[in-house]
Design a protein around this nucleic acid. Structure first.
Lengths: 337, 337
DNA sequence: TGAGTCTTTGCAACCGGTTGCATTCCAAGG
DNA sequence: CCTTGGAATGCAACCGGTTGCAAAGACTCA
């Protein structure tokens, strides 16, 4: 069914090696042979079989892209950037959906069967044991949106979640709020834990503050709505730092349903600054996460690992910044800092 | 680096064929050999190389998943369902992002190089020439969310967009609106054209109606917002059928920014019923598109094509239904139908 | 025990490429 | 005109599997 090297070689009247060489960068072929081969290949509509060549070269140009949250709109952007970035570098993303997977080993096995050149784990909720499994199997791996560590076990690209937590706490305090809330993502997620740590640090210094802490079940709209509804029933704080934007939007929805006004009755600051956060009917004040940079860097790292698999794991962090929109009052006059 | 068939064979003290056979469904191996092989394989951590075997079997279990819109949240759900569905059937999605691609030939070539077993084109905006190119290349292809035709050139799974257009028009009329609008997606998309056709059909019968027609530049929030802003400046209709949900939400945003109330000042009905449409702070009245069924069916079709590539192309349509939420007034008393 | 049948097994060729090595070709230099 | 050396080419082995085929083994039944 497919046209093979042999067919082209026969038509061009050269050896199979010659054909192979004309399609290989930097191999030595005379212009004459090259021309003959190219003509024959064009006539037959020949496409080299990438899989067959991977057998000898050991390179498939396949990259596993692993995600575990398909309910957070930020991931649409993440997929867009990853797929485009990988394509531009001649790599192909093999998408793995881990959202209902109980056994990460299964996807590890699968990706090994397809001998992917590398793996990108795009998740802030997967435990580090997961990317580590790839490293242990000798597969280059980078954990995007993963947890910072000064001695990371695998390459990590992301943000300083602790600092984001601080930034959020300071923002709430600067608005004059004294009763503030931390409405985190899943308590088991490292991102949640780190953000809480930073938040807690700042808050700990001020005995005048009252702080509520709760955790949503997932980084999703529903979880945010449910958790905020619970808070409202319990008697809410004046303003909340929510785990991320989609959680914030869920919370926002609960607040509005309760007939309260944002930001006057209750303020919210999110994290991510995903596309939707800027939509006028959402208009979320949030901490911007430089998704594009994180993804570009992740790809660069995985590409560099293709040549130098043994490189020592590094953690790269990108700075975040507060984006002021409509869900948090402007800073109060009492200039706390 | 990798453990191969040979290694296992040597450790188990059998031939390579024996090892291959224990890993192949339905091959004849004695329980004794199988046990030996399995033990050896486990000890070495052997993983059969799927790519190498694809060379002889002609099956890669790779399926190209092609999308061209990464700004519409519905696609997150689409990716979720496709990846899960494919994984469950032992197939691997090779994701292709066509959003900035000028040359579809390039992705065709690429997917052929990876000898994908089949291709799913998930888009209502790509022209039929695109999936046709795969068919012509002998690659099984199904066009999800594609245009209906009684004599389709490739397998199509989707909805009856013409009927959706009718449904929307009837819904607007039933609410007592006499000045109604069609705010479509890109005019070049077949989905837009078909929806307009149905809409036009219903509307044509009633000379008392006044109808505005405009098209947004894309199925995206921004395009919907911009187009509705233009309508508002021009003097809007009483209620609109918007191309899809994300367009509707953009339009909604423009309406709210203009200080108008929905649905009293202006009504909106969308299409898709994506997850977000049900979020309480959006609460969009919309036509439900059975995404899950479409995707499950698409996968079934592509799987069946793996065994019987020559099957005649069919178009499968699924019925849609109106989901009443808060962006369209309840039907008026004058019971038009 | 032996014939007949069915199952298991290994050999070797093959899938579609790549690549080390030896050979041939060609042009420049003496 | 003959060397000499680099470039171009083909041969054949190899990548990691699968599979048709023939031989060997196991089992049934007489």
């Amino acid at each position: 069914m497919g046209v093979t090297l042999k067919d082209v070689a026969e038509l061009a009247g050269v050896s199979r090696s010659a054909v192979s060489r004309t399609f290989t960068q930097g191999a030595s072929v005379s212009p004459k042979t090259r021309r003959k081969v190219e003509r024959a290949a064009a006539k037959l509509g020949y496409q080299p079989n990438a899989l067959a060549s991977s057998l000898t070269t050991g390179r498939t140009k396949l990259v596993g892209l692993i995600a575990d949250n398909f309910h957070n709109p930020i991931f649409l952007q993440v997929f867009d950037l990853f797929t485009r970035g990988l394509q531009e570098r001649g790599l192909r993303p093999l998408l793995v959906n881990l959202s209902e997977e109980r056994d990460p080993e299964a996807s590890l096995r699968m990706l090994r069967q397809y001998s992917v050149d590398g793996v990108i784990v795009a998740s802030s909720t997967l435990p580090p044991t997961f990317p580590r499994a790839f490293r242990d199997a000798g597969v280059p791996v980078v954990h995007s949106f993963g947890r910072f560590s000064s001695m990371p076990e695998v390459h990590v690209v992301g943000i300083d979640n602790v600092e984001c937590g601080r930034m959020a706490a300071r923002a709430l305090i600067a608005r004059g709020h004294r009763h503030i809330g931390f409405l985190g993502g899943p308590a088991t997620a490292s991102s949640t834990q780190d953000r809480y740590r930073g938040f807690g640090e700042v808050v700990a210094g001020d005995p005048a503050l009252r702080v509520d802490v709760t955790y949503a079940a997932a980084y999703s709209f529903e979880a945010g709505r449910a958790e905020m509804a619970r808070e409202l029933a319990r008697g809410p704080a004046e303003a909340y730092f929510c785990g991320d934007d989609v959680l914030s939007i869920g919370a926002l929805s609960a607040v509005q349903s309760a007939g309260l006004t944002v930001p006057d009755d209750l303020g919210i600051v999110g994290l991510n600054d995903m596309e939707m956060a800027g939509w006028q009917n959402i208009d979320l004040t949030t901490i911007h996460q430089p998704v594009r940079q994180i993804i570009d860097t992740s790809i660069d790292v995985v590409v560099s690992l293709l040549d130098d698999a043994g490189r020592l794991p590094e953690a790269r962090l990108f700075p975040c910044r507060l984006v002021e929109r409509g869900t948090l009052k402007p800073p109060s006059d009492r200039t706390d800092r």
